[in-house]
């Protein structure tokens, strides 16, 4: 197996701007970014709330969520599949084998990461800010907006971790998306498919493109957070 062939394949894909390839990249990014956005909308407030509140069973919830960070994508995929199947409880939505199903599955995968990392970050910040905020008459849940805002750069790292997990996984999107050509075929499912077709240079080429994209997004986010941090202290 020729690595040079893989790299030239990768360059051909990128420079050739093949519309089919761009479609696959676009779909992958859109699904993953939508999932991360949804996970952020749900997970940031939930994680922050978990950080500042005390209730019986809280430790159990924390252990549970930390454990769910290791949820195997295939299991998440299977659960969403069973929920969304026409024979399942949410079958009437009719979204199995659509990008929406992929977004739901990936949101499920990313959510525990976002909640757990948010809780950790916010809890640390909360320890530092608690008395000052209480002195200003801000306590508990009312402190969440302040804490989320001040933790934004650390939280961005958590979202990046979520993005990394979602963009790299193949198990869940394959099961709930069905790897339908031109419709639910993402970079990772294409890589799996091309591998099964024995077209290893193309598969590896796509892998290189995926890695490059991941590096690019991480780099941009890192740079933005560094610059932001300099201005926020």
């Amino acid at each position: 197996m020729d690595v040079t062939a893989a790299f030239s394949e990768a360059f051909r894909l990128i420079l050739g701007a093949d519309p089919k390839f761009l479609g696959i990249v676009g779909l992958s990014l859109r699904v993953t970014l939508t999932a991360v956005l949804l996970a952020a909308i749900i997970g940031l407030p939930l994680g922050a709330w978990l950080a500042v509140s005390r209730f019986p069973g809280r430790n159990l919830v924390i252990v549970l969520i930390n454990g769910l960070m290791g949820l195997p994508p295939v299991v998440a995929g299977l659960v969403v599949f069973l929920l969304l199947s026409r024979s399942g409880p949410l079958g009437s939505w009719g979204v199995l084998f659509t990008p929406t199903a992929m977004v739901i599955a990936q949101t499920l995968l990313v959510l525990p990461i976002v909640i757990a990392l948010t809780r950790g970050t916010i809890e640390e910040l909360w320890r530092e800010y608690r008395e000052h905020l209480a002195s200003l008459g801000v306590s508990g849940i009312r402190a969440v907006p302040t804490l989320l805002w001040d933790g934004r750069f650390a939280l961005a790292t958590g979202l990046l971790a979520g993005f990394g997990r979602a963009s790299a996984e193949v198990g869940a999107v394959l099961i709930v998306g069905g790897n339908i050509a031109n419709y639910t075929r993402t970079m990772t499912t294409t890589i799996a498919l091309e591998t099964s077709k024995g077209d290893l240079p193309l598969a590896l080429g796509l892998g290189i493109v995926l890695m490059a994209l991941t590096f690019l997004i991480n780099g941009l986010a890192f740079g933005a957070s560094r610059i932001g941090q300099r201005f926020a202290g």
């Binding site: 519309p19 949804l38 929406t100 977004v103 739901i104």
Partner: peptide, 28 residues
């Protein structure tokens, strides 16, 4: 809400299906 949001995001991004039938008709 999450689903509705996801659906909206997708509507805002019609290039999801790269060769959609102009009629919008499809079978699985």
């Amino acid at each position: 809400i999450a689903l509705g949001l996801a659906a909206n995001l997708m509507l805002a991004a019609p290039a999801f299906a790269q060769t959609p039938a102009p009629s919008g008709r499809f079978i699985t």
